[in-house]
Design a protein around this nucleic acid. Structure first.
Length: 280
DNA sequence: AGTAGGACCTGGTGGC
DNA sequence: TGCCACCAGGTCCTAC
């Protein structure tokens, strides 16, 4: 589920629901979810702190706390949050509970247990090696056609692989990389350097990335804010309720642009969907 | 510098 | 119904 638009939706929902509340107590149901710090220390350091702003960097969720600490969450594939009044039952996938002093509680849930939570001093965030390596935010002003050109130039990798590389540009995952390429009419298999050489393709891809992400974010925020079910994944088909994909998951269906059947191939072990007629 | 492949985990789906 | 293979939105590691 979670690529940039989904993480952004979770961040906004969290900011509205738990921003400003005080953490009374923390219960860790699955110790391995907490990284880089002991569970005891994690619980002790969180107790009594007030949750300030909730923000996002790349696909990380950052909850700033009073006293200069930040909770860092990465949802990976199946992480999410559930917010409930105290007596209500918890989902079986709850891994960490944040009990708030107004009697509500926030549960971090994760089916596959790939997600992670850390607690680090806010000021140390920017200094970590991992943070430094993160690429540009695609919706920020720092991301320009020029910047895109620089990151593609000289690379013989497939363009899709570069879009998924979080040290280049952050936030795109398998779905939105595929969607952006379709919008830009660029083949996922085309070498990055050859995209860089064509100004038309470059601009189309730049716009494709931004429009795809903007639309997905807009679609998420058009949905009613689920207070009780923030983020968690539960879908029969893989489309988000109000956002349907142009090509992702649509093998064999007609391309929405030209009608040719959408193909599915494996690239680096992951499914790529594209239209062989209009993406070149 | 690349890529392929596997690992981490769990659950859902479709075929037989 | 049971069993099995395969699939999944992320990232990291090792071996070529």
């Amino acid at each position: 589920m979670p690529e940039l638009p989904e993480v952004e939706a979770v961040v906004r929902a969290l900011d509205r629901t738990v921003g400003g509340k005080r953490i009374a107590r923390v219960r860790v149901l699955r110790p391995q979810t907490i990284q880089c710090i002991s569970v005891a220390r994690f619980c002790r350091l969180l107790r009594g702190r007030v949750i300030g702003r909730v923000r996002r960097r790349a696909k990380f969720i950052l909850m700033d706390l009073s006293g200069g600490w930040t909770v860092v969450v990465h949802l990976r594939m199946t992480g999410g949050f559930v917010y409930t009044e105290s007596p209500q039952p918890l989902p079986p996938t709850a891994r960490v509970l944040f009990l708030l002093d107004d009697g509500t509680r926030l549960a971090y849930t994760d089916i596959r247990n790939l997600g992670l939570i850390r607690l680090i001093p806010t000021e140390q965030l920017d200094q970590s090696e991992e943070w430094r390596r993160l690429g540009v935010e695609p919706l920020s002003r720092a991301f320009t056609v020029r910047r895109l050109e620089e990151m593609l130039r000289g690379s013989r990798r497939a363009i899709k692989a570069v879009l998924l590389d979080q040290t280049k540009v952050v936030g795109l995952g398998n779905i939105y990389a595929v969607e952006a390429l379709h919008r830009a009419k660029v083949s996922p298999m085309r070498r990055a350097e050859s995209v860089a050489r064509s100004q038309a393709r470059l601009v189309a891809l730049y716009e494709g990335i931004r429009e795809t992400l903007r639309e997905a974010i807009a679609a998420q925020s058009a949905e009613p804010l689920h207070l009780e079910f923030i983020g968690a994944k539960r879908t029969k088909h893989r489309s988000t309720a109000s956002y349907s994909f142009r090509v992702y998951g649509r093998q064999g269906e007609p391309c929405p642009v030209c009608g040719a059947p959408i193909r599915r191939v494996k690239q680096h072990g992951r499914s790529t969907y594209y239209c062989a007629r209009c993406q070149t």
